[in-house]
Simulated scan of single mutants.
Amino acid sequence: MGFQYAFGVCHTNLKIVGLWPGSINSKFNGIIPVLLLTITIFIMITFVTMAQTTKLLMIWGDLGLMINNLSTANLPITVVIIKTILFYNYKRELGMLLSSVINDWNADKTKGEVINMVRNAKTTRKLSFICLFLGMGSVNGQLAVRISQELDILPGQINKREPMLISYFPYDYKPSPIYEITWLFQYLGAILATLIYSGIYCFFVGLVLHLRGQLANLRFRLETLDIDGNKANHRKITKKIGFIVERHNILNRFAKEIENVFNGIFLVEIISCTVLICLQLFLLVTLISDDNKDINVPILQIVFTVTYVMHVGTHVLISCYVADKLQDESSAISQSAYNIQWYNMASQNSKLLLMIMQRSEKPLKLTAGKFCSFSLLLFIQILKTSGGYLSMLLAVKEKI
């Protein structure tokens, strides 16, 4: 159990679409990922983004259809394409971060340090499966809703043999097998976008939790320093504290690199997440509103909408949660350095401890575009903002 256990789900997701950073190590292996990534982006743009954007212009003015078009796939997959480009631009830096993680797993460790790293690896794997499950549930939920509408099991689709998503194609897609092929490529585009969306989140979560584990190991080394006041022991203590200071500096640089890579990606994500939660909640309120009291409530569509909101919200919640844990762990190092018996140390060792405390004064924070720090408070603010936008949309709907 180690690196592959923690990053296994993420590795599979991103390797399928050609985004796994490790593939840059070989020129031969580099051809296949680029080809896979090109095909993935082509399918997403051609069969989802362009087709839905064209349809959006055609239905402009119909609030319900516009929101359905934007929130179901158009806006999410457009955001995924932007995030894909940003992520790919940092592929070399991400490969270096992965190499650092692998080196940490291969380095000599105490039993306690191994247990701590395994605990964080298990958490990473569990959160990765949650992200992937909700993502696939959303895509297949939309598929089930559309099939039910085509078969007249659910209301909401007057014209038959329409694409899976609200889209326009410049060809006659209703005859078989063109109709089935169009559905297949739209479904495939949604699946590939989900793999990228969840994969990037899992990658971020894995890096942050690994960093948290390394900080915890460093804190344990501080707390277990043997301070006995023996002058002959000072040199040994100096060597141990010197290692901790150097390691702490390396981990701070690791955190800075994560921040540099992901702050732009998550700025786009925070903005889109706020809008998507608002739009999906609007559709949910519309489905169960009094306007539909004479129609059977479409349970399957409500389940899909709830799953989709959970899918978008849970990803952001997980990122805020792990960033909060990282911040707490980085602050704890300063307290641990203060609590040890520094008064029994040589002045040189006390100064080294002071360096650790000064570096830990400002906890490690991960931001979205340098504007806001990831934390549970940020997640609450996103929900509040989405609620404000929802109130505005409902007011606009009442006036139409």
Rank of each mutant, 00 (worst) to 15 (best):
I41S: 04
N89K: 14
V101G: 03
M58D: 07
L393V: 05
L70T: 07
L222A: 04
Y88N: 14
V80I: 14
V306D: 11
M164D: 02
H315D: 06
F3D: 06
S71R: 09
E93I: 02
L19A: 06
L283P: 04
V114F: 06
I295V: 13
A323E: 03
K27N: 05
M345C: 09
G22R: 03
L35W: 14
L317P: 04
V48D: 07
I77P: 01
E180T: 03
L279N: 02
C320P: 03
G369T: 03
T78P: 02
L195R: 08
H234K: 10
I158V: 12
Y5K: 15
S350Q: 13
L390E: 01
L86F: 09
G22H: 02
G61L: 02
N140W: 15
P76H: 13
T49S: 12
N339W: 08
Y179M: 05
I333V: 14
D328G: 11
I16Y: 10
V34H: 09
L188R: 01
V101H: 06
K111C: 09
K399Y: 08
A193H: 11
T274M: 01
Y168E: 02
K83R: 09
G189V: 05
T238M: 09
K236A: 12
M136R: 10
E361V: 10
S373K: 12
E329M: 04
T124P: 03
V303W: 14
Q341G: 08
I295D: 06
L211C: 11
F3Q: 10
Q142W: 14
I356D: 06
F169C: 01
C273I: 08
L251M: 10
Y187N: 12
L354V: 04
R235D: 12
P155Q: 10
N140T: 08
G112N: 14
V9R: 06
F254R: 02
T78N: 12
G61R: 08
K236V: 08
W183H: 12
Q142P: 08
G369P: 01
H248G: 07
D226V: 13
H210F: 04
R92S: 05
R92L: 05
E246R: 15
N217K: 00
F129Q: 11
L225Q: 07
I130S: 11
L376W: 05
Q52W: 09
V118G: 01
T182C: 11
L251N: 10
K174R: 15
V208N: 00
L209D: 04
I181P: 03
K126W: 05
L352W: 06
E93M: 07
G229W: 00
I302Q: 07
V275D: 06
I24H: 02
P33L: 00
I82H: 13
E93S: 15
